[in-house]
C-alpha cells in the first residue's frame, strides 16, 4: 500500500519535473522571439515572481499576512544602489551578495519583533517596522537622495564587460534576462524543495493548527522566525535583481502600497498553490504595465481587477485553471 502511494508520487513528481523543464526551456527561448521591451517585461515578471514566492512562504504556507514586505524589496534595491555608488562595485555577483546580506539582516531584525505575533497584530507590526524604514529613506536625503532617490548604472554580469555603445540597452536586457532566469529557476527549485520538506510541512501544520503543532513538540516561534527570515531574504533578492533593470530607486518601493502590490500579485496567482505567486508575479507585471500605459487611472483598473479576482476566482489564476483542468479530465474520463 505504502509502496504504491510512493510510486504514484514518484510518477507525479517526474511529470512535474518534465513540465517544469519544458517551461524553463520556453522561457529560455522567448527572448529570441520577443522584442527587447517584451523581454524586459518578462524579466520584471520573473523578478516579481521571486518576490511573490518569498511573500507566499509566509502567507500561504505559514498563515501570516505581512504588510511590510516592501521593506525587504526596497532595502535589497537600496543596498545595490549604495554598494554601486559608495563602494564602486560594478560586478553584479558582488551586488547580489550585498543585497542578500542586507535583507537577511533586516529580516532577522524584523523577525525578532514579528515572530511572536499573529493575525492583524503581525500585519500591523510588519507595517509599522517597514514604515520606519520608509520614513528614514525619505528623511536621510544626504545618504538616500530623499524622495528623488538614487540612480543605478548597469552592472557587469559574470565575465561580460560593461555595457556601453550602440545597442547596449538591447544587449544588457538580453543578457540580464538570462541572469534573472537562472536565479529564478534556482530559487523556484529551492523553494519547492523547502515547501515539500519536513520543515515546509511543519509550517503548514502551524498555519492549520497552532495549538496542536505545539502539542507535537514544535517550537512555533522559532519556526515562524526561520520562515520569516527566508521569506524576507527572498523578497529582498527580488529587489536586488530589480534595481539594475529600472536604473533608479526611490522610497516608493519601501512604502506600504508597494507591500500591497506584492500581496496583490500573490493573490492574483493564488496563495493556496506553490505556483500561484509565480504566475501572479508575471501576470501582475503585464497587467500593471498595460494599465499604466493605457490610463492615468491604473490604480482604478487594478482595484477593479482585484475585486473581480476575489469574486470570480478566489483561488487565483492557478486555482481557476486547476479546477478547470480537473473538471475537464474528469469529464473526459467519464466520457
Amino acid at each position: 500500500m505504502i509502496i504504491k502511494i510512493g510510486a504514484i508520487k514518484n510518477v507525479a513528481q517526474s511529470k512535474l519535473f518534465v513540465i517544469s523543464l519544458l517551461i524553463a526551456l520556453v522561457l529560455g527561448a522567448l527572448p529570441f522571439i520577443l522584442g527587447t521591451y517584451q523581454t524586459l517585461l518578462l524579466a520584471y515578471g520573473l523578478i516579481f515572481a521571486i518576490a511573490g514566492l518569498g511573500f507566499n512562504l509566509l502567507l500561504g504556507y505559514t498563515g501570516l499576512l505581512s504588510f511590510g514586505h516592501a521593506a525587504f524589496f526596497g532595502v535589497g534595491a537600496y543596498a545595490v544602489a549604495f554598494a554601486a555608488r559608495d563602494l564602486g562595485i560594478k560586478n553584479m555577483e558582488l551586488l547580489l551578495l550585498t543585497g542578500i546580506l542586507s535583507t537577511f539582516f533586516l529580516s532577522v531584525i524584523f523577525g525578532i519583533f514579528c515572530s511572536g505575533l499573529t493575525r492583524i497584530f503581525f500585519a500591523i507590526m510588519c507595517l509599522a517596522l517597514s514604515q520606519v524604514v520608509w520614513v528614514l529613506s525619505n528623511k536621510l536625503y544626504s545618504i538616500t537622495g530623499g524622495s528623488d532617490g538614487m540612480s543605478v548604472k548597469w552592472p557587469s554580469i559574470l565575465w561580460f564587460d560593461e555595457y556601453s555603445g550602440s545597442g547596449a540597452f538591447h544587449r544588457f536586457i538580453f543578457d540580464y534576462y538570462y541572469y534573472v532566469l537562472v536565479i529564478f529557476c534556482i530559487m523556484v527549485t529551492l523553494m519547492w524543495l523547502l515547501c515539500h520538506s519536513p520543515f515546509g510541512k511543519v509550517l503548514q501544520a502551524i498555519r492549520d493548527n497552532e495549538t496542536r503543532a505545539q502539542f507535537v513538540g514544535i517550537n512555533i516561534k522559532k519556526c515562524r522566525f526561520i520562515s520569516f527570515v527566508i521569506s524576507g531574504s527572498l523578497t529582498g533578492l527580488a529587489g536586488t535583481l530589480w534595481v539594475p533593470l529600472t536604473g533608479h530607486i526611490t522610497p516608493e518601493s519601501l512604502h506600504w502600497p508597494f507591500s500591497g502590490e506584492i500581496l496583490f500579485l500573490t493573490l492574483l496567482g493564488g496563495f493556496q498553490n506553490f505556483s500561484g505567486p509565480i504566475i501572479g508575479g508575471i501576470a501582475f507585471t503585464y497587467l500593471k504595465a498595460y494599465a499604466v500605459a493605457s490610463t492615468p487611472y491604473w490604480q482604478f483598473v487594478l482595484g477593479v481587477a482585484l475585486l473581480l479576482i476575489v469574486i470570480a476566482m478566489p483561488r487565483g489564476i492557478v486555482g481557476l485553471f486547476s479546477s478547470l483542468i480537473a473538471r475537464f479530465t474528469s469529464r473526459s474520463e467519464r466520457g
Binding site: 510512493g6 508520487k9 523547502l194 515539500h196 520538506s197 520543515f199 510541512k201 511543519v202 507535537v216
Partner: peptide, 20 residues
C-alpha cells in the same frame, strides 16, 4: 502522523529534502 514522527525524531529543521 508523519509530522509527529519527524518532530519526535528531530527532523523539524530539515529544509531541502522531500518529506514524502
Amino acid at each position: 502522523i508523519s509530522l509527529s514522527i519527524s518532530a519526535r525524531s528531530g527532523k523539524t529543521y530539515t529544509f531541502l529534502s522531500l518529506a514524502d
